[in-house]
Structures are given as structure tokens and as C-alpha cells.
């Protein structure tokens, strides 16, 4: 096997957990080199599980254009067999950018990677309803991995490996970073609640959120939601669970009318107990839930609230 290039990810001055997950995965495949774009020495000192770090002194502005150009330069310097990125907002930009720059094949939404001769990625597609195996040839190739696909501890080790610095080439200069925007403070912090009643598109209308609120009240819980509920403006962003929302780990997570798309699971699959109620028996949420019920959520929720009162 050739080198495995892991693209580290950080935001707000901190390395993302997913970086360690990728390093752990990469160490199972070959020699691991980590690319750190716009990161700090403090971050380098946490990358002890890698054989080498390639550092790019770019502004930490998360500009997909400049980071993409920098990754192109790192790829030239490293000449890897496989490049692993996260599946996040930035990881996906970088994976796509590199694929376009180098004409290297790309697989996204990956939950696992193997490299025995040819590189293969397993991915959860179509909202998690289909598992696909993709053949990427013998490399070089790129795989974008869904957060939470491997244990982070396997890739976490203090200590600084050898560091090489690569100059960042100027990008095309057409995308200009203005500012980071931090989330507004929330009325309720869903990350601290023991119980969450989470609603998805199955709730149907804004008015019907009330039935979930009543259940939440009976359980001293908070109402959380999947992305479409937030996009519709029915609940504030601070209630969103998932990839672009918050990661939660309550004692009990009750999912009502949530299909279980990979982007949602990323935010809640580590909850101690997951109870899912969905009218579709094939909904992927049932694959991660501990308890499930195939039913109309409205039939269940009102009866449940009454039973608890």
C-alpha cells in the first residue's frame, strides 16, 4: 500500500473528532500522512498517531477555494494512494475539489474503506435505504467518510510526528472570506437534556408540534428536530440535531416521524436509548434505534402522553 493522506479538519480553533476517526481508519490501511491546512502547532501536537504531518500555513478562514488549492499542492508533495476527507461541509468541498483538479475518482458518504489491491468504499446512499460498494481502482483516489464511522480513540495519540511545511499556492482569488458567524444563544440547550422528543417531517405541520411539546412536558424533556423542521422555520436552529446541527447523547431519544438519514444519525446515534416511531417499516431509523414502533406518530404520542400523566 502507498501512503494514506488524511485531511485534518478543524473549526473554531479545535480539531474535529472526525480527524481522529480518519487517522484510525487510515492506520488500518497503510502509512498515514496528515494534511493540516490553516491549523496550529497545538493541533499538530495531537496528531501523534500519524507517521507524518504536512502543514500548510494558510489563513484559518475555511475558504473552500484556498483550502482546495492548498490540498492540491499537498497531494502533489505526498503522492498518496488514498486521500481520506471527512464528509462535512468542508471535507466534501475538498474531496470534490481534489477530484476535479487531479481527475482522481471519488466516493462519498462512505462508512468504511478497504484497500486490498483495489480500493473499495462502502457507503449509505438514498437516505440510508441502500448500502453500496464502490470500486475506486488501485489509486490514487479519494474517499469522503461520514462522521462517526470509526472509533476516534484509535487515531488519537499525543505527540508531534515529523512535520513538513508546504507553501499554499494562491487560489483563483474569486471566493473571499468575510467572517465566521457564531450561532445565536438558545432558549433551550438540547445537548444537556436527559430526554429529547425529536420530531421530523412526519409531524406534517407547525401546529402539530404541540403534541410533541405535550409529550416533552410529561417527560421533562425538550423538543428537538430534524433539519426540514428547522428549514421550514417551525423551530429555531438551536433545536436541530445532526451533521449541520448539534450532536446529542441523551439517556433517551424519542424519534417521531424521522426517517433516519445519515446526516441526522450523525447527531444522535450515540444516545443511550433510541425509541423510534415511524409509519414506514423500512425507515433506516429502525436500524439504529433500540426500540421501534411502526405506527402513525399521532396515534402513539397522544396515548403515550396520557399514560404518563
Amino acid at each position: 500500500m502507498g501512503d494514506i493522506l488524511v485531511v485534518a479538519e478543524h473549526l473554531n480553533g479545535q480539531l474535529d473528532e472526525a480527524t481522529f476517526e480518519l487517522i484510525g481508519m487510515a492506520n488500518g490501511l497503510g502509512n498515514t500522512v496528515v494534511a493540516l491546512i490553516g491549523g496550529t502547532d497545538e493541533m499538530v501536537s495531537q496528531l501523534g498517531a500519524a507517521s507524518k504531518v504536512v502543514k500548510v500555513d494558510a489563513a484559518a478562514d475555511f475558504n473552500p477555494e484556498t483550502y482546495g488549492a492548498a490540498l492540491g499542492a499537498v497531494a502533489d508533495a505526498v503522492n498518496p494512494q488514498v486521500v481520506l476527507t471527512t464528509g462535512s461541509s468542508m471535507g466534501m468541498e475538498l474531496a470534490n475539489s481534489l477530484s476535479a483538479q487531479k481527475s482522481w475518482p471519488l466516493a462519498v458518504a462512505a462508512t468504511g474503506v478497504s484497500a486490498n489491491g483495489s480500493v473499495k468504499a462502502e457507503a449509505a446512499l438514498f437516505g440510508g435505504k441502500i448500502i453500496a460498494t464502490t470500486d475506486l481502482g488501485s489509486g490514487p483516489c479519494i474517499v469522503a467518510v461520514v462522521g462517526g464511522s470509526a472509533p476516534a480513540d484509535a487515531g488519537r495519540k499525543e505527540g508531534s510526528p515529523a512535520v513538513e511545511t508546504v507553501d499554499a499556492p494562491a487560489g483563483a482569488g474569486k471566493v473571499h472570506f468575510k467572517k465566521l458567524i457564531m450561532p445565536e444563544s438558545a432558549d433551550v440547550d438540547i445537548t444537556t437534556k436527559d430526554v429529547l422528543v425529536a420530531i421530523g417531517r412526519g409531524i406534517g405541520s407547525k401546529d402539530d408540534i404541540e403534541v410533541a411539546e405535550e409529550l416533552a412536558e410529561a417527560l421533562d424533556a425538550a423538543v428537538a428536530a430534524s433539519r426540514p423542521i428547522i428549514d421550514a422555520g417551525w423551530l429555531p436552529k438551536s433545536r436541530q440535531v445532526g451533521k449541520s446541527g448539534l450532536k446529542v447523547k441523551p439517556k433517551v431519544y424519542i424519534a417521531l416521524g424521522i426517517s433516519g438519514a445519515p446526516e441526522h444519525l450523525e447527531g444522535m446515534k450515540n444516545s443511550s436509548t433510541i425509541i423510534a416511531i415511524n409509519s414506514d417499516k423500512n425507515a433506516p431509523i429502525f436500524d439504529v434505534a433500540h426500540y421501534g414502533m411502526v405506527a402513525d406518530l399521532f396515534d402513539v404520542v397522544e396515548e403515550l402522553t396520557e399514560a404518563l400523566d
Binding site: L11, L180, S244, G245
Partner: peptide, 18 residues
């Protein structure tokens, strides 16, 4: 085009795109 790109945890960045 002035755009807001979403990252995780509700963090966003503003970019100007030529």
C-alpha cells in the same frame, strides 16, 4: 454573490463570490 456557508453546530461563514 454574498453567501452563508454552513458548518456544524450552527456555525456559518460568510463569503463573497465573484
Amino acid at each position: 454573490a454574498t453567501v452563508h456557508k454552513e458548518y456544524s453546530g450552527g456555525i456559518m461563514a460568510e463569503f463573497d463570490v465573484d
